[in-house]
């Protein structure tokens, strides 16, 4: 084998990887929503920032309040963001003088942050030990601390910065919203509402199937701003309507298509990126990553072929080398005399 082959061989190996990359584009489409996907519709224009949902979430899930550094007694919760102790939080967007609610300039708006229960979740795709799973029926993304190895790839990969690892503990775990239906809580299984939905006094956080929530969101976007609308509370058919004036909505449903879609949908009076929601393409990054991985490793064909190829070369070259040194056992493991030539 001469230098040309040497380089060709190197290029060939890299080429196989590159080819895998080039042809992966459609290898794995986005996941479809689960058949009975449950959902939450958060309407930022209805949220008054009372944080009743934050407190209720803590009670239901048995999480301690998070106090500010200058508070000595842990009396009430002042969690600024998601953390190992906080699965749900209300955050605010403000601009300038922050005079008018749901206005981008000199205005403010609230946003609820909890796990989005992605239709095609990155956390589930990346978890090496299936500690993150998506329920095949209701689509809830669950976490299993007994399986989790604590690699924090899910923390790194989630586009919404949702999973929170507890670094303060000597043997921490991940915290994230599990729609109040994880083992030991199981509110949905018992016919109850998620804690945050039950606590919401204005109907800003609504619960139902993903289909129902999408239909309700579309209905609201079609309303005339300034008209009256009977906003449902808790669920669409709980009979708990609150009349309210329709605001000027930002004309999109966040979570319908974004990043492959989510089971927590947002409506807002301001652009979504103002609320800190990431702008994602329709094709989920999980599908793109899995498509690439599956193209390279399809049936393990490429690795096995590579193995066979290099094994053949190595065996042949080793045998030739041994023949050259036949009858000279002392030299069997030593280089040729031209070891220092410089053809390379």
């Amino acid at each position: 084998m001469n230098r040309r082959d040497f380089l060709k061989g190197m290029a060939g190996g890299a080429g196989a990887v590159a080819a895998g990359g080039a042809s992966s584009a459609e290898a794995r489409p986005n996941r479809e929503p689960a058949p009975e996907a449950v959902a939450m519709l958060f309407d930022s224009t209805l949220c008054v920032g009372c944080k009743a949902c934050v407190t209720k979430c803590k009670t239901v899930n048995g999480m301690p309040p998070e106090t500010r550094a200058d508070e000595t007694l842990p009396l009430w919760d002042s969690a600024p963001g998601l953390s190992a102790k906080t699965l749900n939080v209300i955050q605010a967007y403000t601009d300038g003088t922050a005079e008018v609610k749901d206005r981008e300039t000199d205005g403010f708006a609230f946003v609820k942050r909890n796990c989005m229960h992605c239709v095609d979740p990155g956390c589930v795709s990346v978890c090496p030990v299936s500690a993150m799973t998506k329920d095949a029926n209701n689509g809830i993304v669950f976490y299993d601390a007994d399986a989790c190895i604590g690699c924090r790839y899910c923390v790194y990969a989630c586009p919404y910065d949702v999973p929170q690892f507890d670094y303060a503990s000597s043997y921490g775990a991940i915290s994230k919203c599990q729609f109040c239906n994880q083992q030991g809580v199981e509110r949905l299984d018992h016919g109850l509402l998620p804690g945050c939905v039950e606590a919401c006094p204005t109907g800003a956080t609504l619960f139902g199937t993903r289909e129902e929530m999408l239909a309700e969101a579309r209905r609201r976007l079609a309303l005339t701003p300034g008209s009256e609308y009977q906003y449902p509370r808790e669920t669409l058919d709980a009979g708990l309507e609150v009349p309210s004036t329709v605001p000027a909505y930002y004309p999109k449903i966040y979570g319908e298509e974004q990043g492959g879609g989510t089971q927590v949908l947002h409506l807002s009076g301001v652009a979504f990126d103002k609320l800190g929601l990431p702008i994602l393409p329709e094709r989920s990054f999980a599908s793109r990553s899995e498509g690439l991985l599956h193209t390279i490793y399809k049936g393990m064909f490429a690795p096995v072929a590579l193995f066979a190829g290099v094994a053949w070369f190595a065996r042949r070259n080793l045998q030739r080398q041994a023949q050259e040194h036949a009858g000279d056992p002392a030299e069997a493991d030593s280089p040729r005399d031209d070891a220092h030539d410089d053809r390379g």
Binding site: V126, Y171, L293
Partner: peptide, 19 residues
């Protein structure tokens, strides 16, 4: 973070081949 669970990497039922 949870090194005692490391054996899950070789349990066929736990391994996630999309990871």
């Amino acid at each position: 973070g949870r090194y005692l669970n490391v054996y899950n990497l070789v349990l066929p039922g736990q391994m996630n081949f999309t990871s």
